[in-house]
């Protein structure tokens, strides 16, 4: 077994293990389905990290020849956990298998929800509405 840690987004968002690149993906708006997927199309090796999602939401559509890959199958493929922007994935290959981390672009359909939502500060006006409230009293 090989355990690899890489980024969910940005630089280092792809790990290549035994010739297959893997990326972290999310296809649902609410971000409830983060998973690690092999990003090489089974047809002729097209870039599945640039895939779109079929209308029924059940398959990825490869950008090269339009081949379809079941999402349910992809989601089972690699046991993984994401904490913040860090992904840890376990691959069923010998522990000394080489793994290289690099960057690949990922299509919008595969990063439907950003892994980490960032909300701005409340507008100063909000705080003004109830200064005693947010502030409590004093200082």
């Amino acid at each position: 077994m090989l355990v690899v840690t890489f980024s969910a987004t940005g630089a280092g968002n792809c790990v290549e293990v035994a010739g297959t690149p893997y990326v972290y993906a999310r296809t649902r708006r609410d971000g409830s389905d983060g998973f690690v997927m092999g990003a090489r199309c089974p047809h002729r090796g097209g870039p599945l990290h640039l895939a779109s999602v079929s209308e029924d939401g059940a398959r990825l559509v490869c950008p090269w020849h339009g081949g379809r890959v079941s999402l349910a199958r992809l989601r089972r493929q690699v046991p993984a956990v994401r904490r913040g922007d860090t992904v840890t994935a376990v691959f069923a290959v010998p522990a000394d298998t080489e793994a290289t981390v690099r960057h690949v672009p990922v299509s919008d359909a595969l990063c439907a929800a950003p892994p980490v939502r960032v909300r701005g500060l409340p507008e100063p006006a909000d705080t003004a509405a109830a200064p005693k409230a947010a502030a409590g009293t004093a200082g």
Partner: peptide, 12 residues
Amino acid sequence: EEVDVSGKWTKD
């Protein structure tokens, strides 16, 4: 939002 677990996990 901070943590998600995915894929099919086995004992190994």
